[in-house]
Design a protein around this nucleic acid. Structure first.
Length: 668
DNA sequence: AACCCGGAAATTTTT
DNA sequence: TTTCCGGGTT
């Protein structure tokens, strides 16, 4: 083993002792508890490089799973810089991407056929709604979204319809819910489709029902790395446990203080239980923070200490964070807290601060406004536009969720995958071609009678001369033509042709009365451009269903606006945290139902926000905020009182309730 | 099949 | 307030 050699390999030299231990502890289960800004990504990438460079395993014998696409991309980039093209051979990706890759190899093992589709949230809802209606339930009385959430939660826990245990206190009898779940799963299989939760559920089923497949994978993966382990759900945990056997060379990296996804089925318990789950596990703590200035660390640590359910970890400052940066100023030795009259004023104050920072030579790139809920960004956008400050929003309405993009993609799906009824139904009458509900109903009846797809039913319908509709014939002929074209044209060319020949662009061009038609046309052009980066249509569709976002443009100097959730893993010189009010942050939903657990998660979210900052944090709260049409009053967030007072400098506008206990300063 | 109207929900966070 | 959905009418 390379670590036995006398010379220290160069890639280890840049690490501190704890990091180095985390990298060199290759055998057996290891939990790396890495606090914010302690060099987690460096440890992960170095560990991978170390395993490969010292010959412990070939690249393709290593599996590294992340939670987000961004984390996967970042790791890939940094690893490529270290070990070059061998990176490509590592199994590196999000849980969902890796699971999908495995399922693609053996779709038949979980009753799928090749080329199965990955449905997005919108398709899932549509499908479930159909099932709910078929069951004679009124979608209005029983929220389809609520039912969907329930199904997803089951899937997050790795439960198939057969394994779901009846739960009391649900809106419907348990047996009926399970039937809905079962029908939903049956419909998905019939459509040759999976939803997001299925990727993991099926991957788990694959291992459970096919021991030979599991053994193959166990033999292949000598080393497993897991990022953001605190965000894993039960299904992911079970899947990892199976896969890691019998060597248990599994290294999980995470921070229980940054667990913010329980609403999506993540189990903080996974990380809290690690030592029990994996006997003889080594636990390595990374607590040396290289990111934030001491006052920020103090504020963040003081806040998170109010959580009871945590492993306990204390960050300390690794180096003095600031050398020669434009951020050295005396008044920013504390976390600034501003209390203002209303949300409008809050936007003014924050954007003014951003503007004056910029005038002092600080770049917009290094400033971020992190909000609790995405609707908060609007007010800031308006203000930024007034002062002509460039900004970018991360998250928001995602590119591939826009209507016109989903329509275009539905066309592609119909071409690639004739069984995809959802996509077919979506495009059947878009643009309008006289194929309305009556036609859809007829097709459904026929499809059900013959046990085939809607497209098969459509072909069949055309053979019965009496009912044959000219426009349906035209559509089916077009589809056939596009299918042939797909084998010749590059994907981008095909998309352009489909949009043209289907009449879709004509429809938009014609629709001058709708103000956003030009934007939509623009988006479609953007889509063609995005498709241009792919050589294979199927590959593109895969990318769409997993990545959901389009490559960000060139890095220019802009302020970033995003939610706190989206900010995890990022860092900025200055971070602005608006909306620290009871009811907004902590969010009302957390205060209503969830009890202490939900509140602790909100607190962790606040912790994540604070620890994104290198040099400067400004928190703000508004006494009044416009929600819908009404103006709501709120008192400052309890989190403000939980930050150690000596790490904070408060200024509140006159007349603004500044919170209990502390004397307030008036005016500035 | 296309249009109009009224009522209800919307705003937590995402692979 | 706006937007979306479903039902009813033309």
């Amino acid at each position: 083993m390379a670590s036995d050699s006398c010379e220290t390999p160069p890639w280890l030299q840049a690490l501190n002792p704890e990091q180095r231990r985390a990298v060199e502890a290759t055998e057996g289960p290891v939990l790396v508890l890495s606090g914010a800004g302690t060099g987690k990504t460096r440890v992960l990438t170095t560990r991978l490089a170390h395993i490969i460079a010292s010959g412990l395993a070939a690249p393709w014998q290593v599996l590294a799973v992340t939670f987000t696409n961004r984390a996967a991309r970042e790791m890939k980039d940094r690893l490529t810089a270290m070990i070059g093209p061998a990176t490509e051979q590592i199994w590196l990706g999000t849980f969902h991407a890796v699971a999908l890759r495995m399922l693609r190899r053996q779709p038949d093992c979980v009753a799928l056929r090749p080329n199965f589709t990955v449905l997005d949230a919108d398709d899932q809802l549509r499908l479930l709604k159909q099932i709910v209606q078929d069951d004679g339930l009124d979608p209005k009385r029983h929220s389809v979204q609520g039912l969907m959430a329930m199904v997803q939660r089951w899937k997050d826990r790795g439960l198939t319809p057969d394994q779901v245990t009846p739960e009391p206190a649900e809106p419907l009898p348990a047996a009926r819910l399970i039937t809905l779940y079962r029908r939903y799963q049956e419909r998905l299989l019939a459509l040759n489709a999976v939803d997001f939760g299925d990727l993991l559920l099926h991957a788990l089923t694959l291992f459970k029902t096919h021991p030979d497949v599991l053994t193959d994978h166990q033999n292949r993966f000598r080393y497993i790395l897991v990022d953001e382990y605190q965000d894993s759900n039960v299904a992911q945990y079970l899947w990892l446990r199976l896969l890691a056997r019998p060597r248990y060379n599994i290294c999980c990296v995470g921070d229980d203080d940054q667990a913010i996804y329980s609403w999506r089925g993540a189990e903080v318990d996974n990380i809290l239980r690690f030592e029990k789950d994996f006997p003889n596990a080594r636990v390595i703590r990374l607590e040396r923070n290289y990111r934030s200035r001491p006052h920020i660390l103090k504020a963040a640590s003081g806040l998170i200490e109010h959580n009871k359910n945590r492993l306990g970890k204390a960050l300390f400052s690794g180096v003095s964070a600031g050398e020669e940066t434009p951020w050295e100023e005396s008044r920013e030795k504390k976390v600034l807290v501003r209390g203002v009259w209303n949300d409008l004023r809050e936007a003014e104050v924050v954007v003014e601060e951003i503007d004056s920072d910029h005038l002092r030579g600080r770049s917009f790139n290094q400033m971020a406004i992190l909000v609790r809920a995405s609707f908060q960004t609007r007010m800031f956008e308006e203000r930024l536009i007034v002062l002509a400050i460039p900004y970018r929003i991360i998250g928001g309405v995602r590119f591939y969720e826009r209507q016109e993009i989903r329509d275009a993609i539905a066309y592609l799906r119909v071409i690639v995958q004739p069984d995809d009824d959802l996509a077919f139904e979506r495009i059947l009458n878009v643009p309008k071609r006289g194929l309305g509900p009556a036609t859809v109903r007829a097709l459904h009846v026929l499809a059900r009678a013959e046990g085939g797809s809607l497209q098969a039913a459509a072909e069949r319908l055309l053979t019965t001369p009496k009912t044959a509709r000219a426009s349906l014939r035209t559509l089916m002929e077009s589809l056939a033509a596009w299918r042939i074209a797909a084998t010749i044209l590059p994907p981008a060319g095909l998309v352009a042709r489909v949009l043209e020949e289907s009449g879709y662009t004509a429809m938009l061009w014609h629709a001058e009365h709708t103000p956003d038609a030009p934007t939509r046309l623009e988006n479609l052009k953007e889509l063609v451009r995005a498709v241009g980066g792919f050589e294979d249509l199927v590959e593109f569709l895969e990318h769409v269903s997993l990545v959901m976002e389009i490559d960000p443009g060139a890095e220019d100097d802009r302020v970033t606006l995003m939610t706190l959730h989206a900010a995890k893993g990022l860092e900025f010189d200055a971070v602005f945290l608006p909306g620290w009010e009871e009811g907004l942050f902590p969010h009302q939903r957390a205060l209503d139902g969830g009890g202490a657990k939900a509140l602790e998660e909100e607190r962790r979210l606040a912790y994540v926000g604070l620890t994104r900052a290198r040099h400067k944090v400004m928190i703000s709260f508004a006494a009044n905020r416009r929600v819908y049409n009404q103006i709501l009053s709120a008192i400052p967030s309890r989190f403000l009182d939980e930050i150690p007072p000596d790490a904070v400098e408060r200024h509140s506008d006159s007349g603004v309730y500044a919170g209990p206990r502390r004397p307030r300063r008036i005016g500035t």
